[in-house]
Every structure is written in C-alpha cells, then in structure tokens.
Write a protein that binds this DNA or RNA. Structure first.
Lengths: 363, 363
DNA sequence: TTGTATGCGTTATCAA
DNA sequence: TTGATAACGCATACAA
C-alpha cells in the first residue's frame, strides 16, 4: 500500500444543530419547529417558510435516535439481518433485496455475518437488540434458536430465511429445495440417465436434507428405488466434493450423471470431471446459479433459486407483523419460493454419450 | 409461493426493561445500575451481583439510542456505507470487510446501494446522516461529491472507496488500477503479443481512466506507441463488449490478445471469442477475479483486486480520523492497494498460436 | 396557530 | 460506594 501526498485540514467539529437552535434563530418555540419537521399543516405559511430557511442555513437534520425514544411504540425504524457470509453471492443478493424492501418502508438494515457459527449468530443478535431493532431476519446456524424465545414472546417479529429456525416458532422463507432436486432428477431421467449420482452437504443442514429428499423421492417415483452407493452426503468442501466425485466415477457401475447439492460441490465435481476428461460425457446439474456458468464448456445447467424473491418475501413478512396489532397476528407460516431449472448444456448430455474426443486445454 | 400450515401465537408485546426497572427490582438507584452497565469498578461486589442477576431476569438490554443522546460527543457507534450494488460480488466483499472491521471496534454499519445514481447516493447519505452515523464510507457515483462539504467541514470523517470523490477533499482508498493493466500488458508482451486490444468502461469512470492509462503507458514504454484502433472505450454492457470484441477481432490487422477493463467486459469478450472459435487462439486477460474463472477452458487469467484489503483499509482510515482530535488530523491521503496478476491459462496463450483444432461444445 | 410542561432512557454533576 | 437531580433532543398532552 502506498500513500500519496495531499493537503491538511481543519474541521470545526461543531455540534450538529438541534430543533432548539432552529427555534432560537427564528424566534419561535421548539414545538413549532417540531410541527414543521413532522409535516403538520397547522403552521402559518410565513412561519413555516422562515423555519425551513433556518433549517437549511443551520444544516439541521432531525435526530432520529432522540425522536425514537419518545415516540410511542419506541420503534427505531431499523431491522437486523444475520447472514452467513455477506461476501457470498447468495447472501449478498439476499441482503440487497432485504435492504431495498426495508428502505422502501423508511427502514434501515443492520447486517452481520455469522460465518455459520451459532455463537456468533447470538452475539450479532445481541448487538442488534441493543440497538433496538424492530425485527430480525436471520439465516440460522446450528440447530437451536430457542435463545430467541424471550424476544418472540415479547412480540419481536423474527423471520428465518433459507433455513428453518429450530426449537422455536417463527415464520420462515425458504426455497422449494426438494422440488428443485426433483426437477433435476426428472430432467436427467428424460435424457436417458438411470444412474444419477448425488453429492450433498452436511446432513445437519436443512437445505441438504430437503434437497436429498427431492432427489430420493423423484428417483423412487420413477425407477422404484435409490442406489445408496450413488449418494454421498456430508460433503462440505470443494476438495471433498472432488474426492467423492472421483470415487463415484471410478466405481464399478459409475453414474452417468451427477447432481450437486450446492455451489462448492459443483465446483469440486467439475474439477473431478475435468481431471478425468469426462466433462463432455457425464451430465451434471448444479444447485444455485453462478456468474460464469454459461461460459463453461459445456455450459452449466443449474437449479436456480429466486434469491431476490426470498429476501423480498422475508422482509414483507416482517413488515406485515410489524404493522399488525399484537392481538391480530396471523399464524406462523413457512413460505416457499419456487426454484427454476436452467438448461444450458451440462444437464442435457445424454446417458452413455461417447467421449467426443476428450479435448482439454487447461493451460 | 405456497404457504404451509402452522400454529397461532399470542405475544405479550410488553415494554422492554429499562434501567429504572432493574433499579426498582434490586432496590438501588438508577445511577448504580448505570455504573454496572458501564463497567465502572466503584460498585460493591454484592450490589453488582444483585444488579447483574436482575438484569438477566428482566432480560435488560441498555438502550443505545438513549445513551447516545446524553453521552458526550453524541456518537452513535455506527457508520454509513454507500456501495453501488450490494448484490455485486466486489461490493459484497467490500461490505463484508468494512462490516467486520467496524464490528471489531463495536461499531455497526448501515449499508445502502446507490445503483450508480448520484441522486440515490445523496438520498442514502441523507438517511444515514439523519441516523447520526459517525462517519461515511462511499463508493462515489457521478462526478460531484461537493454536497458533502458541509459534513466534512463540521468534522464528519468521510472515506471514498474504489474511486475518488470529486470536487471535495477527503481520503480515498483505491486499487492500483494502472499498475494492474500495466502488469497485464507486460505479461502479454512477454508471451510475444504485439497487438493487444483494450476494452474499457465509460471514460467518465475513474477506474476506467486509470486502467486505460496503465495500458497505454506500459505499451508506450515497451513498443513506443499505442495503436488507437486497438482501443475501445465507453463499453458498458456485456452486449457492447461482445460487439466491440467482434469488431476488433474481425478487423484487418486484428489483435492477438485482449485486455478487458472489468468483469462484464470480460464476459462479453469471452462470448465473442467463443462465437468466433478463438478461445484457444487469442489471449485474454480480465480485470477482477470471478468465481468460476479457473474452470473455463482455457482458465481465465485475471488481474485480481484485494477487495478485503480495500475495505479494511477504508475502515481503518475512518476510525483513525474518528479517534483523532479535531486539531491533530492527518492530511488527506489517497491510499493505493496493490493488485495481483493471476495466470491461469487464457493470458499465457502465445501470440500467433495456431487454432489447435477449434473445439466447441456449447450445448 | 402557537407555546408550556412533562417524560422517554440514559449519562453527567455533584453531593452524601 | 451510593444517590438525587439536571440535562440530552425530541414528542405529546394540554393550554393559550
């Protein structure tokens, strides 16, 4: 890191103007200024004009913190969002959707990344609650969100996203994971595949369970059974995914197609296919879309989640509860967002395709 | 979207406990509770224990809003971050780094997306200022940030990121863009290329200017001149990038290598190369790393920015100013973060490479 | 149409 | 070591 020269500065560090300052300058009471700030119409146009002028001159901005304390309900017009990792594209899209929905309703979003650590999740929630957020949207980690019971009991709205909150009753917004893998399975079956390998994340994860379930049900419905040797769960890193994919493909009766339970697994499986020179021969469908997916050869067929819809729906649900009276709250619900299969090539390779001529050009 | 059944609820919607409640329960004055909350050591251990017990029972959480009003300095322990689009991976990584740095210092981050619209940027800043953020980190849009002068004058720290703020004096943290394209040019020259095409974003963008400059300077230093026919600026969409790349490659004396000024341009250029069956023949280097870059064939050589370092540095700079006295502020600086060339294959294709046998399998 | 008094939850001052 | 009280910036009820 290099530094470049520049000029000094001398900030005044003066206190920000308050309503009292504005009132004093105009020569009216603070209450009249308050009326103007809050848009009441029972102010003389002249007075209003002079007050507005003074506000501009003094660069006055109402102090939301102070007003929140006094205002009935004590709302802060802010909500907390706990994601797993904001740098992850899925989570980032989610955060964007939530932030936009909130901003439309004049609310701000406090965002924190738990990194999948339940303790960090709790710390973040604690920080947000200290800031008096009006509600929480949480991508839950671990298997126990009962620590939030005290908050839901006192009426704080909480919406879980992507996964279900456990040991607690609350709303949740999730993708139709099972339908996604089921669609993928049927798609592969339609292209002649009968042996479809499945690579899934840790069994403890809600999404991993749901996606596996969709795979198994679709397969059972169509072919009557699932070959357990084709299923590898608890795959949690790119390296593990590559290893398990290699194992599957190197077995006696290898799969002609692979279904990958998430992005990282897809990358690992692609590494394996590439190393074994099977990219053109073995079909592959990934869960979650990726930026360059359409530029791979063959282009990557994926089950895509509607991430903006997930975020928007979660925020809408939260605001629904926020705006409802305590005695007329709707029952908790699980809201399910549809997913879409996007065929791009890798999922349309037919079963038993000959290795065209196995071209690689990696460097 | 489908709904699933669940059970009703009946939240009490009770007011959150205050220090007064805690004091009443223990039978001490509110001030003593305050001392415990703020970790002062002049409290009798017994009293402290009883107070801490009561706080737990009542689920007491200090109200930061209220404390902020009274506390001298009036700090809110929050900062505002304006990015272009939080859903964009670069911006998401940036936000994550800033949020982490802030959290380490007990500060929270308010995040908003301007979508490159200067007016939206100003609106977001206004919202943040109403929330009394202690400082701002901004990815500036447009060519005029003078509207922030009133804030810097009163001592509010502002750090610009990724681009320079214009018509205003403030700190800025940017990548060493010129060095990045210069490195890329030298890399291509070393692989025998003499005709290197450049595709850049809108000339109005700081990053586009800096990157073009690096390209031109490196080329002039090595070969004595820049062929203007090889440079296409103001390319702002994938479609435009594909079109310009096609035009360059279809010209009389076409480039043997392409240097792309950003991610979208890279994607467009890859489309063009793929359509013309030149992926194995024409070298390509992109600016900014992408998730699946190493899985393309050939894998994508890129100039990668150290996004976490950018975010961290910006936050550190902001807190430096936040913690310094008004009369001992350092001069404004432009902090430059190094970039790294990551060779993966596409940038190492030699000049005049024969079309191996032009294999495509796009579908 | 405008102003006064009081209170929100907390911290700061000063006294006990 | 503890407490009474004023003050922060604003909103609310009520009075003028």
């Amino acid at each position: 890191m290099t530094n470049e020269e520049s000029e000094p500065k001398r900030p005044a560090a003066t206190r920000a103007a308050t309503m009292k300052d504005v009132a004093a300058r105009v020569g009216v009471s603070i209450k009249t200024v308050s009326r103007v700030v809050n848009g009441h119409d029972d102010v003389h146009p002249d007075t209003r004009a002079r007050i507005e002028a003074a506000m501009k001159e003094l660069n006055f901005r109402p102090n939301v913190m102070a007003s929140m304390i006094r205002r009935r309900g004590g709302r802060t017009a802010s909500i907390g969002l706990v994601v797993e990792d904001l740098a992850n594209p899925f989570m980032a899209q989610l955060a964007r959707a939530v932030a936009d929905s909130a901003l439309c309703r004049q609310h701000l979003v406090l965002i924190g990344s738990s990194d999948g650590d339940p303790e960090r999740e709790r710390e973040l929630v604690a920080v947000f609650l200290t800031r008096r957020v009006d509600g929480l949207i949480i991508v839950p980690s671990g298997d126990d969100q009962s620590y939030l019971k005290a908050e839901t009991d006192r009426g704080l709205p909480i919406v879980f996203v992507d996964r279900l909150g456990q040991r607690i009753e609350a709303d949740a917004v999730v993708s139709d994971n099972a339908s996604g893998t089921a669609q993928a399975v049927r798609h592969l079956l339609a292209h002649g595949h009968r042996r479809i390998g499945y690579l899934g994340d840790l069994r403890g994860f809600y999404t991993a369970q749901a996606r596996l379930q969709g795979y198994e049900e679709a397969l059972r419905a169509a072919t009557g059974g699932v070959d357990p040797r084709l299923v590898r769960m608890d795959v949690h890193t790119v390296a593990q995914a590559e290893q398990e994919a290699r194992a599957l493909l190197g077995s006696d009766d290898p799969p002609t197609a692979l279904l990958c339970g998430n992005n990282l697994i897809t990358v690992g499986a692609l590494h394996a296919l590439q190393a074994l020179d099977l990219r053109q021969k073995v079909a592959l469908i990934g869960f979650d879309d990726q930026d360059l997916a359409h530029l791979l050869t063959p282009a990557l067929t994926v089950v895509a989640q509607d991430v903006p819809a997930i975020g928007r729906t979660a925020a809408e649900r939260l605001f629904l509860r926020l705006n409802a009276q305590p005695d007329e709250q709707a029952p908790y619900e699980r809201l399910t967002i549809p997913v879409t299969l996007i065929p791009r090539g890798s999922g349309e390779i037919p079963a038993g395709a000959p290795a065209e001529h196995g071209d690689r050009a990696d460097r």
